[in-house]
Structures are given as structure tokens and as C-alpha cells.
């Protein structure tokens, strides 16, 4: 028997609608990426395809888990925490699966853009470590019972995110400076997409039910779904539409000396 939550298979209601839609959109993204990558032989291109296919694939599983209530728990914070907690007997409904999904998929996004930029394994590893710290402290903010502890962890997580985005902007951009024009353009778009979408997550946490409770669970779930689909499926579409990934222009053309030698 499935754990209880707002959405059920028979009659989806509440935020379950957005969780179901998120599952479908992630699955569509995954299937489209599989179709685009079908028959690709180049080992380096295969790496991009596999990583980019897995990102919405894992996210789809996460959304399905939340839809069925597996990825949901309750955190007692007291009625004084915010209006949402006051209406729910002092408890918050928290979708923990979101964080487990992010702990898996955000490093994959960084791996994707790191490989595109040609960043070193050390730099990618450092960014992934910072990313894991950001997600885990964000989880701390969500699971804490004391309001002060929740906002303290949110602050730590947000500082980690600012450092991560700075590192992404500074170090990865420098690594990408040697790329050809098309790959550099794709890198810039993806980097800016990450900068914008990732910045919105802590803001949404702050105004959502886990923070100040300005917006309810229904709107919060919708906005998280839109952000997730943009940051994952949108990211994948841009990356896999790049000529440097799907085209043949990444194959180095022989220099005049090499051509003459032949």
C-alpha cells in the first residue's frame, strides 16, 4: 500500500498534479535525449549523451517517488514557524526526495558542463564536493525543527551556492576559453542557465512553506517543477543541440603542414 499524500493514481489533486506533470516532462526529456543519441559511436559524445539522459531519468524517478508519497515526510516545527505550519498543526510536509534527486543530478550537470569546458578532473571534483555540501546543508535547513537552525543552515547552504557559482563562472569559464566558437557559445548559455536557475532555488525555499510560508505547497511545487524541468531538460536540449556535441566540427581539421606531409 502506498503512503498517503495529496495525489493518488485514481484522482490526482493538490500539488500531485505538478508532481505528475514533472514526472511526464522529465520522462519526455529523457526519451528525446535517448532518441537524439541513438547510434552515436564517438566515445566522447557518448559520455555527454549518457550523463544528459540520466539527469532527467533520475529526476523522473524522484518526481514519481514524490507523487506516490514515498519521498514525503513531516517535520514538526511548531505552529509559530509560519502560516502554513500554523494551519497544519505545527508540522511541515517536506519532499525529501527532491534533495536526494539534487544530490545525484546536480553533480551530473556540473560534470556535463565541466567536460564541455574541458575543465580538469580536480576542478570538477572540487565543484562537485562544494555542490554536495550545498545540498546537504540545504537539507539540514529543511529537516531542522528550530526556526533559527533552519535559517542558519539555509544561510550556510546559500553561501556555498554563491561560492559554487563564482567557481563555475571563474574557473570553468577560463577552461572554456580555449574552445571553438560554437562550443564556447554553448558553454556560456549553459553556464548562465545554471547561474539563473540555481539562484532561484534558495529564494523559492525562503518564500515557500519550508521558509516564510509566503506561497503555499501547491504554488511552491509548481515553481520547483518549472525550475527543475528548465535546469535539467532545458539544459540537456541546449547541450545536445550544440554542433560541437552533435556535429562533426569537433573533429580537428588537419593543419597545412599535416596536409602537406600527407
Amino acid at each position: 500500500m502506498f503512503p498517503t499524500q495529496a495525489g493518488t493514481l485514481g484522482g490526482v489533486e493538490g500539488e500531485g498534479v505538478w508532481l505528475a506533470l514533472g514526472t511526464v516532462l522529465m520522462l519526455i526529456g529523457m526519451v528525446v535525449f535517448i532518441a537524439k543519441g541513438w547510434g552515436v559511436d564517438d566515445p566522447q559524445k557518448k559520455e555527454f549523451y549518457i550523463i544528459t539522459i540520466l539527469i532527467p531519468g533520475i529526476a523522473a524517478a524522484s518526481y514519481l517517488s514524490m507523487f506516490f508519497g514515498f519521498g514525503l515526510t513531516e517535520v514538526p516545527v511548531g505552529e509559530a514557524y509560519n502560516t502554513y505550519a500554523a494551519e497544519n498543526g505545527g508540522t511541515l510536509e517536506v519532499y525529501w526526495a527532491r534533495y536526494a534527486d539534487w544530490l545525484f543530478t546536480t553533480p551530473l550537470l556540473l560534470l556535463d558542463i565541466g567536460l564541455l569546458a574541458g575543465a580538469s578532473n580536480r576542478d570538477i571534483g572540487a565543484l562537485v564536493g562544494l555542490d554536495a555540501f550545498m545540498i546537504v546543508t540545504g537539507l539540514g535547513a529543511t529537516l531542522m525543527r528550530s526556526g533559527v537552525a533552519r535559517y542558519a543552515f539555509w544561510t550556510i547552504s546559500t553561501i556555498a551556492m554563491v561560492l559554487l557559482l563564482y567557481f563555475l563562472f571563474a574557473v570553468f569559464s577560463e577552461a572554456a576559453s580555449d574552445l571553438n566558437e560554437d562550443a564556447k557559445g554553448t558553454f556560456n548559455v549553459l553556464r548562465n542557465l545554471i547561474l539563473v536557475t540555481w539562484t532561484l532555488y534558495p529564494i523559492l525555499w525562503l518564500i515557500g512553506t519550508e521558509g516564510a510560508g509566503v506561497v503555499g505547497l501547491y504554488v511552491e511545487t509548481l515553481l520547483f517543477m518549472v525550475l527543475d524541468v528548465t535546469a535539467k531538460v532545458g539544459f540537456g536540449f541546449i547541450l545536445l543541440s550544440s554542433r560541437s556535441i552533435v556535429g562533426d566540427d569537433s573533429v580537428p581539421t588537419p593543419s597545412e603542414e599535416e596536409a602537406a606531409a600527407d
Binding site: I50, Y99, A100, L103, F104, L108, V136, L143
Partner: peptide, 28 residues
């Protein structure tokens, strides 16, 4: 309890990511 089950599970999720990353980079 939730916390007792959750944190080990989260560690497993991260290890699963590491497994994916290492496997993809050594696929060929």
C-alpha cells in the same frame, strides 16, 4: 526513525552518483 533511515540513504545516493561518474568516464 526517519532520520536514522534517511542519512545513510542519502549517502548511498551520493555514492550512486560517484559510481555513475566514474563508470561514464571509464566507459571506453
Amino acid at each position: 526513525s526517519f532520520q536514522e533511515a534517511f542519512w545513510p540513504l542519502l549517502a548511498v545516493e551520493f555514492l550512486a552518483f560517484v559510481g555513475v561518474a566514474v563508470s561514464v568516464l571509464r566507459l571506453h
